[in-house]
């Protein structure tokens, strides 16, 4: 029971990170129908940007409690801005021209972009693990039974709280603003949306920016939670977040969050109760099983074959 509650807390934290990345996949898939393969690497870059900003601030101002908090906040905001710029540039350079052409071309371009980003970071920042000094190590003990302490760390509280707040804002933007309406219109029928005066290019750009901003949140959280990042960190979380998007039903925003939470929970419970070695196998197996048996996901719309 105690282990269960502890794993639940850990799982939700991890799930929040996956969910935030998954939204980027799901939104882009929804609007232009492509798997943005480079999204995982965008997430990795955001973690690097946070790392650099955090180090720059703490190098000058020291590591006292208030500074660390402020540094993380600034790192988060800078990372959101610059990661959005990355995502915007990627869409502008590598995808826009290929939109609506040969279906494989954007996918190959995205894979190329992913390789490019990963190796750019490797060349620019080196191939080693990049640790940050441990921050917010304090924990809140929830309860103790049979000598096992169930605790939630400030980091976890922060991750869950920030995720929840940002999801709320994001939800409002997508559901209630003209921008969100334009996005949904472009999802349904980009040609018609263009005829009705919606700037499709700009709407798609905004979608990429929003996805990247959320990925940057995930990246900063990932960095604070694990305290380390490396250039190859984009691939596996990327695939897992994609799994989350598919599990939740690709194209569905609540689905992406739900899927992220489920993947996070499955991964932590699998590691805790079965085998930590095979946790990635479990994630990939879920991806395959969901796609094969339930391609519409949990909250997606079923696709009817048109004859």
């Amino acid at each position: 029971m105690e282990v269960f509650v502890q794993q639940l807390i850990n799982g939700v934290t991890l799930g929040a990170v996956y969910g935030l990345i998954a939204i980027g996949y799901t939104m882009v898939f929804g609007i232009i129908g492509m798997v943005n393969f480079a999204h995982g690497d965008v997430f990795m870059i955001s973690a690097f940007i946070s790392l650099i900003v955090f180090m720059a601030i703490t190098a000058f101002a020291g590591m006292s409690g208030g500074v660390v908090f402020l540094a993380l906040l600034v790192a988060l905001i800078v990372s959101m801005v610059i990661t959005s710029l990355y995502s915007w540039t990627i869409e502008r350079i590598a995808y826009r021209k290929l939109r609506g052409s040969f279906r494989l071309a954007p996918l190959i371009s995205a894979i190329g972009m992913s390789i490019l980003l990963m190796n750019f970071v490797q060349v620019a920042q080196g191939a080693r693990n990049k640790p940050i000094p441990p921050v917010m190590r304090d924990t809140i003990n929830l309860f103790e039974r049979n000598g096992f302490q169930v605790a939630i760390s400030y980091k976890q509280v922060m991750i869950i709280a920030v995720t929840a707040i940002l999801l709320g804002i994001f939800w409002y933007v997508v559901q209630k603003t003209p921008l969100g309406r334009a996005q949904r219109a472009c999802e349904q029928d980009p040609k018609m949306a263009a005829l009705l005066g919606i700037n499709v290019d700009r709407t798609i750009s905004v979608t990429f920016i929003m996805g990247a901003a959320l990925a940057a949140v995930a990246g900063t959280m990932f960095l604070t939670y694990y305290g380390v990042v490396v250039f190859s960190d984009g691939f596996t979380p990327g695939v897992k977040a994609f799994t989350a998007a598919v599990l939740g039903g690709i194209g569905s925003l609540p689905g992406a969050v739900l899927g992220g939470l489920l993947i996070g929970l499955i991964e932590t419970f699998w590691s805790a109760y079965f085998s930590i070695d095979y946790k990635d196998v479990a994630a990939f197996s879920i991806l395959a099983i969901v796609l094969i048996f339930m391609p519409q996901g949990l909250l997606g719309k079923p696709e009817v074959e048109k004859v």
Binding site: I93, A94, S109, G112, M113, I115, L116, L117
Partner: peptide, 18 residues
Amino acid sequence: YRMLIFGICMVLMMLWKP
């Protein structure tokens, strides 16, 4: 720079000849 250039080539080739 091998893989970096490889990635750039993949993107450029797709843009040039999808």
